[in-house]
């Protein structure tokens, strides 16, 4: 198929494609930002991995 035949189509859809691309980039940025906030604001995320870590031991009285 001659690629020239699709040039007009590409040209007409260029702005739409740019719009969709920017929307997707924006969405990724929002999800990334949310992930960072959720992880940094959440509970401790480290788990037991066969190494003694005093900060994981519950403090008595708490």
């Amino acid at each position: 198929m001659d690629l020239k035949a699709t040039h007009g189509l590409h040209h007409r859809r260029f702005s739409r494609n740019v719009g969709v691309a920017l929307t997707l980039v924006f969405f990724v940025a929002v999800v990334f930002g949310l992930t960072v906030v959720k992880v940094t604001n959440g509970e401790a995320v480290q788990g037991f991995d066969h190494t003694v870590r005093p900060e994981l031991v519950p403090v008595e009285g708490n």
Binding site: M1, L3, T6, L9, R12, R13, S15, R16, V18, G19, V20
Partner: peptide, 21 residues
Amino acid sequence: MSDISVSVTRDYEPTFGDYFA
């Protein structure tokens, strides 16, 4: 190789703004 085999012909090509509307 060319995979471009489907092209819908329409009188008007909707813009991003049309979808946003």
